[in-house]
Design a protein around this nucleic acid. Structure first.
Length: 290
DNA sequence: CCACAGGGCGGCA
DNA sequence: TGCCGCCCTGTG
């Protein structure tokens, strides 16, 4: 990986085979990145506005500094990982086309609190709606961060801020029946941040057991939180798309939790990466091609 | 108007 | 323990 630092911009070369903005931002792991008219993606993370643009072999990290790139974005985009090793580890004859289809996916390292609330909202919900609800919450209870390419950006609300709102106010953000779960989570986390942020240091099984103590967090949502914010790469979230594709290509059927355990046996410590390639493939309507 | 999509909870066997 | 009805919103 070769990095050039410019004014307000960082250019990265040498990872283009394993970095496709569309794959990264449309594979269901994040909800605050949106495509601009020029094809680049703009999003908010860690209270910063970043724009990502791929041109040929180069990846442009726009609207950022060398300091933030090194302190925030290298970890956020998992830039120190060699994804060819991951791909070779999980690859089997069934996965060749599936990995190729989503070859530019990287698993983002997102904030635990934001990920917890985002995936509580994701329960029984579609991506478009999830994004809308998170935007509502951020505009209403987050802080204005700045304007970029004509759009205003707001930080994700803190647990303290959401704990000061009522369940009904949260419901007004179109959270539906999940409002009380968000309110409960805000109360627990704002009173004991250490609990949430210490889960990253626990093993997968223990962290999963702990996070499921939050109302609205079951097996699927819990695995998403572990995978997308706690570096638990053996996590394997099973939703309706994963149920379909695992049945289709491996003949694995049953309850979501059973499908997860069987899949984790197949892919081992990199199950989460396999899940992302599989989910992206299935959710983009490619199941019929199998 | 109705059907449907999408995880987790809680009540009841 | 396992199953099933229900929660909420938006779209076709």
């Amino acid at each position: 990986m070769k990095v050039n630092y410019r004014k307000n911009r960082v250019e990265v070369e040498g990872i283009s085979d394993d970095f496709e903005p569309e794959h990264i931002f449309e594979c269901g792991q994040c909800f605050r990145w949106n495509k601009e008219l020029d094809g680049s993606y703009t999003g908010v993370a860690k209270n910063k506005i970043l724009n990502i643009e791929k041109k040929g072999e180069k990846i442009f990290f726009n609207n950022t500094s060398k300091k933030d790139f090194l302190e925030i974005w290298v970890d956020y985009f998992d830039l120190n990982r060699d994804y060819s090793i991951i791909k070779n580890h999980i690859r089997d004859e069934k996965l060749d086309d599936i990995i190729e289809f989503g070859k530019g996916i990287r698993i983002l390292d997102q904030d635990e609190w934001e990920t917890l609330v985002s995936f509580i909202i994701s329960a029984n919900n579609r991506i478009l709606m999830i994004k809308r609800v998170i935007e509502n919450l951020s505009q209403k209870y987050g802080d204005y961060i700045g304007t970029y390419k004509g759009n205003k950006y707001y930080s994700f609300p803190t647990s303290e801020k959401l704990n000061l709102t009522t369940e009904n106010e949260i419901r007004m953000m179109k959270t539906g029946f999940r409002a009380k779960y968000i309110k409960d989570a805000a109360e627990i986390v704002s009173n004991d941040k250490d609990w949430l942020y210490s889960l990253k240091g626990l093993n997968y099984d223990t962290a999963l057991e702990e996070i499921k103590k939050i109302k609205g967090v079951g097996d699927k949502v819990g695995n998403c939180i572990l995978l997308f914010s706690m570096n638990k790469y053996e996590a394997f979230p099973v939703d309706i798309w994963m149920k379909r594709i695992m049945g289709e290509i491996y003949g694995i059927k049953g309850k979501p939790e059973d499908i997860r355990k069987k899949s984790e046996k197949i892919y081992g410590k990199y199950s989460g990466f396999a899940q992302q390639y599989l989910f992206y493939y299935a959710s983009q309507g490619k199941l019929k091609d199998i």
